[in-house]
Design a protein around this nucleic acid. Structure first.
Lengths: 202, 202, 202, 202
DNA sequence: CATGAATGAGTATTCATTCAT
DNA sequence: AATGAATGAATACTCATTCAT
């Protein structure tokens, strides 16, 4: 009967709180893994009381799903945008690794959550992750590899298989960090390795 | 005084029990991850009562350490033995992936435990794993890459870095299985990709 | 100064909202019991937001008290009105069970709340219920049994004790329903049983 | 490999602990109802630590089921044994109420749990209770009412319906206690009421 | 050595209630 | 008066570990 403070403000506030919770959750999951993570800690770390998180996510599992979804599309958007600024397939490969490494470096926790989920034991999460990363696999296959093959700068290959290998390689290398958090390998080196593998040798 | 024989028998029996426990533990860890694994379940699956496992391992953590040590050397021995039967660096690369994939296929649980630990969040385990895998990195660098570079069949490169990339690639691809447990990629395809990346182009 | 009309309207509106809340609460309590009931759900089921109910009842407990009071007098009024239309004590007994069963059948949720409270564990509620049902016990004792004894159609007995037995019997039988919600026993059968028990045998 | 302390002792000990837990649980459920009961409190009241109860019952719900089963058969055995010592149907009715009231008086908590379950809102428990009380309904119908009808001391009636009424009456009256815990009605009065209702009037 | 009962710290989740708007 | 976000106490249940037998 009585309206309260503007519907839009309310929505906006909810979104922000939700985002804060997701970010706190990513830190916690990155540090302790899904099973080791403490939901109450997440809520408190985000600046709320224990129970608040349940006003936003019905369960720990759904919270994780939300993170996977959000991360997948953020990851894709970040990389796709930069790749599409290049035309040359070779530059796109370089750009792919540079953008990819940058993404992980900017938010290492997110990267950690993604790989540990990918190689972890919770099949529901893995399956969701594959769904969510489908666009990225396609991006590599269709907007990097296929054009390069057509143009003759890449050797003949199955773009789908190769896309899987490149993604595997990317995820493995970008998230391999030493104890200080620095990645062991530079995007340049990794890109060179991959380019050597796929370039046609004229 | 106990006669010598019974002493030896006892030692032998202990070893066998220990091994059975380790194998049961690998299954459990593979299925549920370290945090999700249940120590009692492991003991029972090995054919003992709940408490027995604590006569062999002082804690869940030490049990995990034991598995990592055992798996690392088993993995290394299995691969090293086969590689050393070849002389040609290129064949050694192919052999490396074939042996590696075979190892994982023969004992997928062990493979799962290794990758999930490698990309997991328990830094103590990760560190131990790096230690344990040191010989494997060296094997690739010194017994595959270095000779190939010297012989001119591989391009100039830093064997250490490249070894890391190859291992990353191997672990990622060998343990990427679809829901039926079949790996997505064949060792041949992966080996070819890597060979293209490292061969010198005369 | 507020004009008189709007004041009355406001009172009226409050009453209606209160009633809607009570009815929603009866459904919820009937379905889930007092402990299992969810206050927010009640408010929402009544068509309001979660918090609204607290503008009408200071606590879950007070809400329950309100229900008990309201139900008790509704129950009494419903039955008393019909009984008093009969003069003959025997007909009054029959009428009592018919009216009683009808009341429960018309609003089974209310019936359920009453019995589950009566036989439940919350002594505060039980005590309130006894208070509230005092008039009903008196009705049976003084307006059904006592006249019948005086007229000689009922045997000599303690009207108070017998009233307790009859009420117990009524509540137990009227609220025993099978899974489809149909009562197991008809008011006729139950009334006959009771009449046999109290009739004088000339 | 090594046996431990005699299997039979073990079994015996487990049984005793289980029984202690059940008894503590009955007290707790009687006092607070199923929803209000605290599982940890039960375990502690039985003289164990919080977790112990879960070594005996997989969940609160299963604990409740165990209580219902145990109580149903204890109740039946207690009453059946005494009834069968009488031959006369009329004495059996008296005996039924005396034994029934005695059962409840000896262990009022058990009685409270039974009625509050019977009139409560947990349909799973109610259904189990009906199952468990089936033998008691039969006892009344077949070993009290039917013989009396045949012998002509009870009037013609449907033994099944009447059995339901008698049980309803019994449960309602036996468990109606005032605040001091004394029942409002004596078994004698209740039995007389019932006998009047069912006796044939020669 | 093997056993399995007991332990109790730890955790996800629920929900009555408050209160700023 | 109505709203719904925030709160935090409360609780069922898990499981690594201990230890008497």
């Amino acid at each position: 009967m009585t309206p309260r403070y503007s519907e839009t403000n309310r929505r906006q506030a909810r979104k922000e709180v939700r985002q804060r919770l997701i970010e706190a959750a990513i830190q916690e999951f990155a540090q302790n893994g899904y099973d080791g993570a403490n939901v109450n800690t997440i809520s408190v770390a985000a600046g709320f009381a224990k129970g608040t998180i349940y006003n936003y996510f019905p369960s720990k599992k759904e919270l994780m799903f939300a993170i996977l979804g959000e991360s997948g599309s953020a990851h894709f958007d970040f990389i796709a945008e930069q790749i599409r600024e290049e035309d040359d397939p070779i530059l796109r490969v370089k750009c792919f690794f540079e953008a990819g490494f940058a993404f992980v470096e900017e938010d290492p926790a997110r990267g950690q959550v993604l790989v540990s989920t990918l190689y972890g034991t919770h099949s529901e999460f893995k399956e969701r992750l594959y769904q969510v990363y489908q666009p990225m696999f396609q991006l590599v296959a269709e907007e990097i590899l296929a054009p390069g093959i057509v143009q003759g700068v890449f050797r003949q290959m199955d773009p789908a298989d190769t896309s899987v290998m490149i993604m595997t390689f990317y995820l493995g290398t970008a998230s391999s960090v030493d104890t200080s958090g620095k990645p062991w390998l530079s995007p340049g080196k990794v890109a060179d390795f991959v380019l050597n593998a796929i370039r046609s040798n004229q």
